[in-house]
């Protein structure tokens, strides 16, 4: 799990991606999760291609606020800030990027 300082460092980069639009390249639904994500199963994760000027780069992100049948290839999505995984009570709660379909 991430420590406060690693979360702080990653957030410096994260701010550039707030409320960014991108396209869904491909996605999958996960039924067997790693530690910290078990409570979310099943959940959707996809590869998102960001539109310029956010660099035009690709990133793997969880897809939230939708059902799988609502998704299609090249779907427009937008980044949102959400809690990442589940932490122990004494750990820092980590927030990071996810995407939802653009309404």
């Amino acid at each position: 799990m991430s420590s406060p300082v690693t979360i702080w460092r990653s957030h410096k980069k994260l701010s550039a991606y707030l409320n960014k639009e991108g396209r869904l390249v491909i996605w999958t639904k996960i039924y067997v999760a790693p530690v910290g994500f078990e409570h979310q199963v099943p959940y959707l994760v996809g590869i998102v291609q960001f539109d310029p000027p956010a660099g035009g780069e690709r990133m793997p992100l969880q897809i939230v606020d939708c059902e799988e049948q609502d998704l299609k290839v090249n779907q427009k999505v937008v980044t949102v800030i959400r809690r990442i995984g589940k932490t122990k009570s004494e750990d820092v709660i980590e927030y990071g990027l996810k995407v939802k379909p653009r309404s």
């Binding site: 996960i30 067997v32 959940y43 590869i47 990133m59």
Partner: peptide, 20 residues
Amino acid sequence: SEEERRAGLTFPALYALMAK
């Protein structure tokens, strides 16, 4: 990668993306 871990990805999921 760090981004993959943060997205809750697993190796089955990464290969599932390639399969799809």
